[in-house]
């Protein structure tokens, strides 16, 4: 694999930042400081505090919140969240890759219309679309009515308020986040390379695995991140379509804030959760760098 150019003095395009450059960067830096760094710091501080009788944060120092995060119950929930998110990502790749590839291979006019179709659902509120799914999946809903009248099934399927419904909801919500980056990569792929592979005797499978996949990999990787990370933290779908039965880590954090009113514990969960992502991201980078070396 080709090594990426290192961003240092050896790079002929690298220049010393001018004061003007800093001024241009300032709005974004201020934004990041106010809305990313400051909240994260508050999160870290809260995670070492405790709560009083009414649920107000008491500023003392304790490790108990972190000890509780590693309790069996919460580890199991975390594992389950990762499992659901992984399954969602897998289905999104399987369904989103062909879709993104297909759209990218159309003539530009058709392509834009197809992309519009992918994005149209975003014009409606996410919650309303979730309620629409409830109307489809409920026992006397659209899906069961259709299947029953077509005599495909003898009695209504119990889909709503099951793990299956949760996965359907998650895949539906995040599929566009897979299609769009895959499309971005596939659109740039030069078809001559695929043809060359065929000319050199590669069958469709080999051309796919050795030419198409490596060249669209950045899109797939971006899609995996865009689907996997938010899917772990999702709580609205598990509540509405899963009947609040299958708790995911997002539900637990939401519960700790609004039901148990235990902000410090919620903060500790949030910190551990964030660290996990940082760790997995670093691990991926490190592996990528070793593969290149």
């Amino acid at each position: 694999m080709q090594a990426l150019p290192a961003a240092d003095a050896e790079n002929p395009h690298a220049r010393r930042a001018t004061p003007m450059g800093w001024w241009l960067l300032a709005p974004m830096l201020i934004w990041l400081a106010l809305f990313v760094v400051a909240p994260l710091l508050i999160l870290v501080v809260y995670s070492f505090c405790s709560r009083d009788d009414l649920g107000r944060v008491v500023f003392d120092f304790t490790w108990t919140n972190y000890a509780r995060v590693f309790d069996d119950t919460y580890l199991k929930i975390l594992a389950r969240s990762v499992g659901y998110a992984a399954l969602t990502t897998l289905i999104c790749v399987a369904a989103g890759f062909p879709a993104g590839w297909f759209i990218a291979r159309r003539p530009p006019a058709v392509r834009n219309r197809l992309l519009l179709l992918v994005m149209i659902p975003f014009w409606t509120s996410f919650l309303i679309r979730t309620y629409a799914w409830i109307a489809i999946l409920k026992s006397e809903g659209l899906l069961n009515a259709t299947l029953l009248s077509a005599r495909v099934i003898p009695q209504p399927l119990e889909l709503l308020y099951t793990p299956v419904a949760v996965v359907i909801g998650l895949v539906y919500a995040y599929l566009p986040f897979m299609i769009l980056p895959v499309y971005g990569s596939a659109e740039k792929l030069d078809n001559a390379l695929v043809e060359a592979a065929h000319d050199l005797g590669a069958g469709p499978l080999r051309a796919f695995s050795e030419v198409i996949i490596p060249l669209t990999w950045p899109g797939i990787a971006a899609g995996v991140l865009l689907v996997f990370v938010p899917a772990i933290g999702m709580f609205a779908i598990t509540d509405l379509m899963g009947g609040a039965k299958v708790a995911m880590i997002g539900n637990v954090i939401q519960n700790q804030v609004f039901k148990a009113r235990n902000l410090p514990f919620a903060a500790a969960l949030g910190v551990v959760f964030t660290l996990l992502f940082v760790a997995s991201y670093l691990a991926l980078q490190w592996r990528g760098r070793r593969a290149r070396a």
Binding site: I134, K138, S139, E140, G141, L160, Y161, G242, G243, A244, K245
Partner: peptide, 18 residues
Amino acid sequence: LIKLFDSDSPKTALLNGD
């Protein structure tokens, strides 16, 4: 035995026949 937990609008699942 419980099918779902809902505080906001438990009537919905009952009306829907779920």
